[in-house]
Design a protein around this nucleic acid. Sequence first.
DNA 1: TGATTATATGTCATAACTGACATATACTAT
DNA 2: ATAGTATATGTCAGTTATGACATATAATCA
Lengths: 109, 109
Amino acid sequence: MKAEKKKKLESRGWRVGSATDFLGLSKEEAAYIELKLALSENLRKLRKTHKLTQVRLAGLLHSSQSRIAKMEIGDPTVSLDLLIRSLLALGITRKGLSQMILFAQRRAA
Amino acid sequence: MKAEKKKKLESRGWRVGSATDFLGLSKEEAAYIELKLALSENLRKLRKTHKLTQVRLAGLLHSSQSRIAKMEIGDPTVSLDLLIRSLLALGITRKGLSQMILFAQRRAA
DNA sequence: TGATTATATGTCATAACTGACATATACTAT
DNA sequence: ATAGTATATGTCAGTTATGACATATAATCA
């Protein structure tokens, strides 16, 4: 199962439980995806607490609205690098990031 | 200061203190680099505790010896994605990763 | 010393990511 | 319903990361 296929699956609406392997998803792959989703969700949360629109955030990050949207929905074409750099740009500390990863919760469907 | 220039500086031997801004390094940039270095070091540590050589690890990760080396020295061409996926493949948990990020220590020169 | 093994460095073609743009779909008001 | 605003989706050309390879430099040991 390659990245493209995942796009409309794990990455999106699902959030089915901890959704470990669900279709031939290795443990690391699952962890990697969950990690990205966790950061995605936190990015959106953070943007909202800052009362920013995707357009304004894109400006701050020198990115684009579409990419912000893709980040927030966990689109497979966005890298951890971009996610993390965005979070850092929003002022998150290493401690904050650590917590974010630790407490990354999966909510039920 | 662009990525290439950093290669032989922050990324390498230095580890000068927390080396925040040291040459026009923004706070996020510094945090990003420190994060990568922290993971790099932990990757090497982890590989050694597993008694693996770079070649063998490369095999496990379906990567190459040179890329493992680059990861471990914090070469700017390696992404957080690759670092984190490697750590996950080595069996690290999200909790472990969290700790790794939280305790990412800078040692003195 | 030289031989062996491990790690570092340089380069390159391919693959993956990126910002930008267009456009579609929500969501709120009025 | 319509307009206005926010977010999602699709695509693409330019950029960056990747594995692979060659080769150089340690490091270890006989």
